[in-house]
Amino acid sequence: MILSVQGLEFRYPGRAVFQDFDFTVERGECLAILGTNGVGKSTLLKCLNRILKPRAGVVYIEKAEISKLSRTELAQRVGYVAQKHENIRCTVFDAVLLGRKPYIKWDVSRRDQEITNRVLKILELEDYSLRYLDELSGGELQKVVIARALVQEPDLLLLDEPTSNLDLKNQLEVINIVKKVVKGQQIAAIVTMHDLNLAIRFADKFMFLKNGNIFAAGGLEVMTPENVESVYAVPVTIERWRDVPVVVPQ
């Protein structure tokens, strides 16, 4: 087990976002967090990475309690791709190299540069390495920030709506890359998503959030019309196309 969450609770002043969250994630597993806007999907990811401090509960990564790790140690285990990222003025290589920050002492080593180069190659970005970020398309930019998280050599990837604002081709490309890396390197990924069909294509497990609770969690068996309708208040049917379930709003 790569991640274990026990009794996690977060609240803003005067408002509980979620409480009593318990779940685990295994190596090689992709977990999709689903739910309506404002239900606390992004907040949950930030609590798993100590960007936000939970009110209660513990989070273990590979048996290490994250509150006892230094920020640098945590960054060596968890790669985080924020929903919003600043388009800084630097080259693709520099932007990805920044992911080595948790390992850099005084200056970048040859190894840091080689790992950056290797990840750029995996994500087919190496021809862009000296291009500036503001010259890239949305899809290319998303791949750059995922590459930055990957050079952290994490055990766990946290991706906050990585496919929002991308066209269909780029959505598929980005989720396929993440899936390939998760399976190939036997790490884990937790991804917040809105597109249920994309989630079905991508994830091994699903977790529906509703009213600050885990409404349903599990494999494809939780992707039922009742669960989807209850969470999103939209009636749906689940069709099958080539043995893959497809969520169709009515």
Binding site: K46, N49, R50, I51, S70, R71, T72, E73, L74, A75, Q76, V78, G79, Y80, V81, A82, K84, H85, E86, I88, C90, D94, A95, L98, G99, K101, P102, I104, V145, R148, A149, Q152, L158
Partner: peptide
């Protein structure tokens, strides 16, 4: 390196281990 990380946004910087 902390300043470079901060340029990428506060959340990204925190994710890279910056206090």
């Amino acid at each position: 390196w902390d300043y470079n990380a901060l340029d990428s946004g506060e959340e990204t910087a925190k994710g890279l281990g910056v206090n």
